[in-house]
């Protein structure tokens, strides 16, 4: 299932498919270790337009709603 990051439920493992937007946004996300094809797990979902907390490469990263909607992800069966 392909969706965007802010729609994922808690504890969902997923793979980043694509990052929409200009190279500034890709750069910002890449700096903190978020790239296409990377595996991540949602630790806290972005309810009510709030930010999403993910675990990626062993670190936790908080991503604001505005940025989460630009991250296209595919939900995987297990991490």
């Amino acid at each position: 299932m392909i969706t965007t990051l802010e729609k994922l439920e808690r504890d969902t493992p997923a793979v980043v498919k694509q990052i929409h937007g200009g190279h500034r946004i890709r750069q910002t996300l890449g700096r903190l270790g978020v790239h296409p094809q990377d595996r991540l797990t949602v630790l806290r979902s972005g309810f009510l337009g709030g930010p999403v907390l993910i675990e990626i490469h062993g670190t936790e990263v908080g991503i604001g709603h505005g940025m989460a909607v630009r991250i296209e992800v595919e939900v995987t069966e297990s991490s």
Binding site: L32, P51, G62, G64, G66, A68, R70
Partner: peptide
């Protein structure tokens, strides 16, 4: 105009 926060925990 920015897309928002990104912050390491």
């Amino acid at each position: 105009l920015s897309p928002g926060m990104i912050l390491e925990m």
